[in-house]
Simulated scan of single mutants.
Amino acid sequence: MKYAALASGSNGNCYYIADGQDAILVDVGVNAKHVELRMHNLGIVPSSISAIFITHEHTDHIRGLSVFCKRYQIPVYITAGSYKGSRLHLPEELVHIIPSDAKVQIGNMTVYGIPKYHDAKEPCSFVVSNGVLNIAIMTDLGRICDNVKHVIQHADILLLESNYDEEMLETGRYSFYLKNRIRSGWGHLSNRIALEALLENRTARLKHLILGHLSGQNNTVDRVQETFAPHCERMKLSIATRYEETRLFDTAELSTEEIVQIRVQQTFYQATFVFPEN
Rank of each mutant, 00 (worst) to 15 (best):
E245A: 14
L141R: 06
E170Q: 14
H154Y: 07
D165Q: 07
G142H: 08
D250L: 03
L206N: 08
N191H: 13
F176L: 14
L169I: 12
T139K: 06
N201K: 12
E161K: 05
T203F: 11
I210R: 02
L211F: 05
D222Y: 11
L178H: 12
L178S: 11
S184L: 03
V151Q: 06
L189K: 06
I182Y: 09
L141Y: 06
G187Y: 07
A194M: 05
D222C: 13
S190E: 05
E233Y: 09
T220M: 05
L159T: 10
H208I: 06
C145N: 15
D222V: 15
T227F: 08
I157Y: 14
R143N: 10
R205G: 07
G216A: 00
H208E: 12
L169G: 04
F228I: 10
R202Q: 13
G216P: 00
Y177S: 11
E233S: 13
V151R: 01
Q225K: 09
H154I: 02
R202E: 10
L237Y: 09
N201Q: 12
L209N: 02
E226G: 03
Q217I: 08
M235A: 07
S190W: 04
Q225D: 00
E170S: 11
G212R: 07
I239L: 00
T241I: 08
M138P: 02
R183G: 02
R234F: 13
F176G: 05
G142K: 05
V221S: 04
Y164K: 00
G216D: 00
R205T: 13
S190Y: 02
S162E: 05
S162T: 13
L158D: 08
C145S: 15
D146M: 14
D222R: 15
L158R: 07
C232A: 13
F176Y: 11
H231F: 15
R202N: 05
V148S: 04
L189Y: 06
V151K: 02
Y243S: 15
I210N: 02
A197Q: 02
E196C: 07
T227Q: 13
S162W: 00
V221M: 06
G172L: 08
G172W: 04
I239E: 00
I144P: 03
S175D: 06
K236T: 12
A240I: 05
N163G: 04
G216M: 00
I239K: 02
L248F: 06
I157P: 10
L209T: 01
R202K: 14
V148P: 03
A204L: 08
A252H: 14
T171W: 05
R143Y: 03
H208S: 10
D140A: 13
K207S: 12
L178I: 11
E166M: 08
R247V: 10
H213P: 04
R173M: 15
S184I: 03
R173T: 15
N147E: 15
Q217P: 01
N201P: 10
E196H: 11
I157C: 09
E244D: 15
N219M: 09
V151C: 08
G172H: 03
C232W: 02
Q153S: 11
Q153E: 14
S238N: 09
M235S: 09
I144A: 02
H208Q: 15
S175Y: 07
R202L: 06
A197I: 05
M168L: 13
E226Y: 11
I182F: 11
S184R: 01
Y177D: 09
T227H: 08
R143S: 10
R181G: 01
Y164L: 00
V151S: 01
L206C: 14
E244L: 13
R223F: 04
K149W: 00
